[in-house]
Nucleic acid binder design. Structure first.
Lengths: 339, 339
DNA sequence: TTGAAAGCGATACCAT
DNA sequence: ATGGTATCGCTTTCAA
């Protein structure tokens, strides 16, 4: 019998002792390409099993200067698109053997502290789904060779990869759909302080409308919302109707705002698709519900998450790569609001 | 000029050297009750600032046998209630100076691996919002003095605290509302394999109805859904109508299912509150939207998160405490589906 | 392949 | 209050 007291935590040394090998052998057993014989490996595994040994990730990370953690920056989880994106990221992160360190940011200032804390845990990568990371901080990350990737945002820093839905294609699909439905007065709805992604969608949308008809028979109306959410768009619909303007086709920067706009119009007795056509960007569970049945531009969060992890891993091996812009395929999902 | 080469990462030793003090002094500077003079502290802070020193949390955690991480187990983020709960938890975790390690579980088996990985990072606590943690694993956590707390679930393990909405009060409020609206045939809708929380709400609901009227003039109908989501409840509504059964009041175990049921009934031409009254449990953004305006039982996710963290921290100081059951206050939020 | 030993970066005990 | 030092648990040369 060994003389262990109230030792609560099993270390590699304990396993080594029981298996009659060195600590190094234990470490090698739990490392991918550790050069170790099948025999000793088996012995170690048996001992480890018996003792219930678990690698201490803190010690491992300290030594390797890198943890198996991936930092994720999120915001506004109340938007169904954002929560489904997070869900996809969590799933992908786990399936690749990492763990997610998730932080919510409210103000842009939060982002700095957040990024700093991520580096203090020596994360293997950072995913930014909200906010603009300050250049200096990103530099710090890269110096520690921590890859950074942004989702659906322009980041004008070389070496920071970006994964983004194909906004041009999405806008074209929307324009095409509205035009062929015969819409004459078309609205583009977006948050007044929209991030780049929304702005980009809008510009491509206008360009697409223009391309469709060089002497535009249609008129374009900009609808700006005060808030970037359901309520903001609903209020915008109220204002629009109050102003007496007519629209027969509307494209919204996000699906949640499209639902808000739809409801706002309903309150005024105007319905889609009878009175106007409506298309939103982002396909979320909410949009498919019976009360909305929104026609949307669909882009897969799963594909997004996969590309994000791909960027992270490929850059980890090769930090000097130039910035990459990964596009996520989009498609038009025809539902009730624009059949 | 100092002779540092391509040294990329600043350590406490570097700061100590620059400030002309010992490593210990640096450590004390960044520790709460470190006994250190204002003078040296100032010197250290200046040097740290100058060098951009950041504590390495991996090393700190290794030494303290405890990281500033809190593990959070989630599932089905597509349910708005779950994502808003997560949002509240993230916010509370951050404001208390921790970082959230978030993992999504799908099958119950996942929970075991997840919990194990949490312990490998020596988390300061574990929050279970989904699934039943296996007793053995929880034992392991407690052995490492990692407090575990469950949300809205019964965990029959002593020393695992539980934070739960006041289901009894909620059920009573719902029953009272439906009865005083004059409902005669009342439905209770729940997922067929519901977790304890749903079952508990149902039992209290039945008890409350019974208490209201000893010789019940009303009839109770159990509506079971095949899936624990919007679609499940919508399908249940279809079935209910097809079966020819009539209800004039329905209470749903979750708000998301209430919305699904509402839509399912609408498809059959039945509307609330004209044809039946409807109340859901959980107040989420979705329920307040114009297309639903659901009367719900509200319970604050913020209060929930605060109580969770309180449980975690108090048990950390005192691991031997008996299990605690924290109740979160509920209230009836009267909206359109049962005015 | 294997083991011994030198870190990784910070903390805490023990003298001073 | 301060500094020296053992220690946390694991990884990784370096020899053998």
């Amino acid at each position: 019998m060994n003389n262990k007291k109230t030792k609560t935590v099993v270390t590699a040394q304990d396993v080594a002792d029981l298996a009659g090998v060195s600590r190094s052998a234990v470490s090698r057993t739990f490392t991918e390409n550790g050069s170790i014989s099948e025999q000793t490996k088996a012995k170690v595994l048996r001992a480890a099993e018996q003792l219930g040994y678990q690698v201490n990730f803190l010690a491992q990370g300290l030594n390797r200067r890198r943890s198996q953690l991936i930092g994720v920056v999120v915001a506004h989880l109340s938007d169904p698109f954002r929560s489904s994106l997070l869900e996809a990221l969590l799933s992908e992160i786990k399936s690749r053997g990492y763990q997610a360190l998730v932080t919510e940011v409210r103000k842009d200032d939060d982002l700095e502290d957040t990024l700093r804390r991520f580096t203090q845990y020596r994360v293997s990568g950072v995913v930014v789904t909200s906010g603009q990371p300050p250049e200096a901080l990103v530099e710090e990350c890269l110096q520690l060779s921590i890859p950074v990737v942004g989702i659906n945002r322009a980041i004008n820093l070389s070496k920071v990869d970006v994964v983004c839905s194909d906004n041009q294609k999405g806008a074209q699909l929307a324009a095409q759909q509205l035009m062929s439905a015969g819409c004459q007065t078309i609205g583009w709805l977006n948050y007044k302080d929209s991030t780049w992604s929304g702005v980009d969608r809008g510009e491509h949308f206008k360009a697409a409308l223009h391309d469709w008809n060089q002497q535009p028979a249609h008129q374009l109306i900009n609808i700006k919302t005060e808030q970037n959410c359901y309520e903001g768009a609903r209020a915008a619909a109220h204002q629009l109707v109050a102003s007496g303007q007519q629209v027969d086709g509307v494209f919204c920067a996000t699906a949640l705002m499209a639902c808000g706009f739809l409801d706002g119009m309903r309150e005024q007795g105007k319905h889609a698709p009878e009175d106007f056509h409506l298309i939103g960007f982002d396909n979320t569970p909410l949009t498919s519900q019976y009360s909305y049945q929104l026609t949307t531009i669909d882009h897969s969060v799963k594909e997004t998450a996969e590309k994000v992890l791909w960027c992270l891993e490929s850059r980890a091996n090769n930090p000097e790569l130039a910035q990459r812009q990964e596009q996520v395929a989009v498609s038009l999902l025809t539902r009730h609001t624009s059949p």
